[in-house]
Write a protein that binds this DNA or RNA. Structure first.
Length: 676
DNA sequence: ATTAGGG
DNA sequence: CCCTAAT
């Protein structure tokens, strides 16, 4: 039986309404929800368009690139495969032989089903793997099961099962099947075992498709290159993902009715042991553990237990904020590389997009009507106040950079929501910076005036773009010195981040009808659980103006770039609140520490830090305190048991004596402070 | 923000 | 090193 340890979700981005600082978290929450609701009508739209293109063998519009990134996380996939390969294989084999049950499907479907209530397209997991949520250029989200095309890529073409043969998805790759397959596989290595499962046609029977009949001929893009780099052609990637999305959508939709019912029995009975939790905790956003905790006992939907949920939410909110704070700190100390973030370093802005809406006092002033084409990034209006020549821009909304979330399959939908919320909050609170790009070039000179920069002319405004950038990551290089850092550095740290990740365009305020987001579902009760905000929430905050709902997704500025971007090279770790690299204290450091403590005593770590490690920004007073702790311990154990770089016995002796001394002082002072 | 301690 | 509680 395949037991998926967790589900990985990649969010290529959310549209979050621009909101006042104070209420952003709430907004974010609302947004997430809204997002889901909105997806409602996106599914078919997307499917229709994509299917049309695929069937016609046409190239995806570059605008769709926005999506690609979501599915190209080689790292992630690889890990996944590694971790669950065995299970997957066994399961797979079982299925091949005996029509194994579709438990994983069921489980996934369960999620998917619920998800669909909100209009989400979730796909089941054929094999344990991740789920990639892909958003199309129009910001519609599609959830594609990565494994579908990653592991079964070529095998994506399934032959109808003899016994159930009602469902089949075929992928014809007349142009270059080889490269096509290779392409995908490169992105997500397929275990050799799986390869062997393929028959001569490279087709692997689908163990789980069965509920419906579907035939989809998907022609691979003609331009698929055979390069094995993860820098897959955006187009091909796009196709694949869309293809997967379609298939999965079909699958999930058709399976919903049936699988949903059978899902219960298959509810994972597995209990995630603490170890796994820790793993999760360390590998992913802090939300991981929280989530787990939550999921364990909060299996009910918030609507069922409003009060309980509410309380929990409050708790969560606190955690979230704390988390955000920590994240921020992480950023600041630069232990997280830019790529760790959903958005990548320097202006990479893999996706953040901001929409600017002209607020011209006089509608006439606007240059290009906002109603422009949906894909026109430069559809912003701007006002030209003839009096003071103010360039008025209002950021209507921006898109939160991609998020990566991993959540145990046993988690509840409610916890999933919370997780997403936290992730979004973390990003927003993680210290963002705004980058300004004009005509493709980043405007770095902050002192330059708009006029000087040329941001006062309509034509210029068209090319004006804003990006969200991680704050305080100016110098990602500092990390390099430590070899241990290297492996953690995402590929994106390589030069030319901008090239690979062009900024997202800012568009005009008026969203084209096409992109118009349907209003938030009326009776959405979820709002109730909005932590810290209940009936008291100011109306203004609770409801976004009609306008803000018009989340205007902007097509990625550069599909290619996005596609190429190794989105998750290592982002997983990073998002997790990457544990700091270990930096063993050198003897000299120990020396300095001992000396400082001898002088200042224990319990004054801040002073010690300032005194002896003021320049060592990576040594916090907590670190020093911890080090002292270990030093004391080390000094007490036999030399044979000591590890790491040996510390001169002399120093250890001093440690002991200093420790003893200060302990005594402390003991003396404790009992009767007044006497001191 | 610091300190103290457990993990 | 991380995480928390308590200051």
């Amino acid at each position: 039986m395949v037991l998926q340890k967790r589900l990985g979700y990649e969010f290529n981005g959310y549209q979050v309404p621009n909101v006042p600082r104070g209420s952003r978290s709430t907004r974010g929450k609302r947004c997430v929800r809204k997002r889901v609701v909105e997806n409602d009508m996106c599914a078919f739209e997307l499917l229709a368009s994509v299917a049309g293109e695929l069937l016609l063998g046409k190239e995806s519009s570059p605008a769709q690139s926005d999506t690609i990134t979501g599915g190209s996380n080689p790292m992630f996939s690889k890990d996944k495969v590694k971790e669950e390969q065995d299970d997957g294989l066994n399961s797979y084999e079982d299925e091949l032989r005996g029509q194994k049950s579709c438990d994983h499907v069921s489980r996934a479907s369960k999620i998917g089903f619920q998800g669909q209530e909100h209009g989400c397209i979730f796909t089941e997991c054929l094999h344990p793997s991740s789920i990639v949520i892909i958003s199309d250029p129009s910001e519609k989200v599609t959830f594609a099961e990565e494994s579908v095309f990653s592991r079964n890529k070529s095998e994506f073409a399934r032959s109808p099962r003899p016994d159930q043969g009602k469902f089949s998805v075929k992928v014809h790759s007349p142009l270059s099947p080889g490269s096509y397959r290779g392409k995908v596989e490169d992105r997500i290595p397929t275990p050799p075992q799986f390869e062997r499962q393929k028959n001569a046609d490279g087709i692997v029977p689908s163990p789980c498709f069965s509920e419906d009949l579907m035939e989809v001929d998907i022609k691979p893009p003609p331009l698929v290159s055979s390069s094995s780099s993860i820098e897959t052609s955006p187009k091909s990637g796009s196709h694949m993902e869309y293809a997967a999305g379609i298939a999965d959508y079909e699958k999930s939709s058709s399976c919903n009715q049936t699988c949903n019912m059978t899902s219960k029995p298959f509810r994972p009975q597995r209990i995630v042991d603490r170890r796994i939790r820790k793993l999760l905790a360390s590998k992913f956003w802090k939300v991981g553990p929280t989530l787990l905790k939550d999921g364990d006992f909060s299996d009910k939907d918030e609507d069922v237990k409003p009060l309980f949920y509410s309380r929990k939410m409050c708790y969560k909110r606190q955690r979230t904020q704390k988390f955000s704070f920590k994240r921020k700190k992480l950023f600041q100390r630069g232990s997280i590389s830019s790529c760790d973030l959903p958005y990548n370093g320097e202006g990479l802005s893999c996706s953040p997009e901001i929409h600017i809406k002209g607020e011209a006092s006089s509608s006439e002033t606007g240059v290009h009507g906002g109603n422009g084409t949906s894909s026109s990034p430069g559809a912003q209006k701007f006002a030209f106040d003839s009096d003071d020549y103010h360039v008025k821009l209002s950021i209507k909304s921006f898109k939160v950079p991609e998020l990566f979330i991993e959540i145990p399959e046993t988690a509840t939908i409610g916890s999933l929501k919370r997780t997403v919320m936290e992730a979004v909050t973390a990003i927003l609170g993680g210290g963002l910076r705004i980058g300004v790009h004009l005509q493709g070039k980043k405007v770095r000179d902050d002192s330059k005036t708009l006029l000087q920069a040329g941001i006062s002319h309509s034509d210029e405004l068209e090319s004006l773009r804003f990006t969200l950038e991680p704050n305080s990551l100016q110098s990602p290089k500092p990390l390099i010195s430590n070899n241990e850092d290297a492996p953690l550095l995402p590929i994106c740290d390589s030069p030319e981040p901008l090239k690979r990740l062009p900024p997202i365009a800012v568009t005009g305020g008026d969203s084209s009808p096409k992109r118009h987001r349907p209003p938030l579902a009326a009776g959405d009760p979820s709002r109730v659980n909005s932590p810290r905000r209940g009936p008291t929430t100011p109306p203004a905050e609770r409801q976004s103006p009609p306008d803000s709902k018009a989340l205007v997704p902007v097509p990625a500025a550069d599909a290619e770039a996005l596609a190429v971007f190794p989105l998750h090279g290592k982002s997983r770790r990073s998002e997790t609140g990457q544990r700091r690299v270990r930096r063993p204290f050198s003897v000299s450091e120990v020396e300095a520490l001992v000396h400082a403590v001898e002088k200042l005593g224990t319990g004054r770590w801040r002073d010690v830090k300032i005194c002896a490690f003021d320049s060592a920004k990576h040594r916090t007073y907590v670190d020093l305190k911890d080090k002292w702790k270990t030093l004391v311990h080390t000094a007490r154990i036999s030399p044979q048991r000591r590890r790491g770089e040996p510390v001169p016995q002399e120093l250890l002796d001093r440690v002991l004596s200093a420790h003893a001394y200060w302990s005594q002082q402390q003991a003396k002072a404790e009992p009767c402070p007044r006497l001191t």
